[in-house]
């Protein structure tokens, strides 16, 4: 059976995906569904079977994110209250072949232009979810293969982001 964190990550990924591409970064708190329902009983009606499983997690979007200078800086400003069991981050990226990446200009704006104009660019959306115990799930969707059954799941796709998300619980 799929574990609660994977389910929450997949749910979050699909939820974000339904809003299409060219989205800003989105951050979610993962909270135990049971506690959420206890606080907000009207939510119980919308639950599916896997939501009632022991340890099930729900994603609660955090809008009004603090101003920050990039993802790492944003995450460095986040601290979670203890009711939050984990968190998930969704962000889009453009990736280019390793050779092209090495040749990018140092200036960030020009580098971004070069990446965006690259013939072999691929647009991806990454969803990284972690829990307080350090467990992590990464999901990656490609814009060129935009369907739920083409989403890749791994633990090690984005070690840097996993590290930064874990650090929000330190």
């Amino acid at each position: 059976m799929t574990d609660p964190l994977t389910l929450a990550a997949l749910d979050t990924e699909r939820h974000v995906a339904r809003a299409g591409w060219d989205q800003p970064l989105r951050l979610f708190a993962l909270v135990p569904t049971a506690e959420l329902v206890a606080q907000e009983p009207q939510l119980a009606a919308g639950l599916e079977t896997h939501d009632t499983a022991e340890g099930a997690l729900s994603a609660v979007e955090q809008d009004d994110l603090p101003e920050a200078d990039g993802v790492e800086d944003l995450l460095a400003r986040i601290a979670w209250p203890e009711q939050v069991a984990g968190c998930a981050l969704a962000l889009e990226r453009i990736v280019v072949p390793p050779a092209a990446e090495r040749d990018l200009p140092d200036d960030p704006t020009r580098a971004l232009e070069a990446v965006a104009a690259h013939a072999d660019r691929q647009d991806v959306r990454l969803v990284v979810a972690v829990t307080r115990d350090g467990t992590a799930r990464c999901l990656l969707r490609q814009r060129a293969f935009d369907s739920d059954d083409r989403v890749a799941l791994g633990e090690d796709i984005a070690p840097g982001l996993v590290h930064a998300l874990r650090a929000t619980f330190d």
Binding site: P24, L25, L65, G70, V71, L74, L91, E92, R93, I94, V95, V96, E101, L104, P108, A111, L112, V115, A116
Partner: peptide, 8 residues
């Protein structure tokens, strides 16, 4: 929060 980020 428009963060289109360079892959590097």
């Amino acid at each position: 929060f428009l963060l289109v980020i360079v892959a590097a």
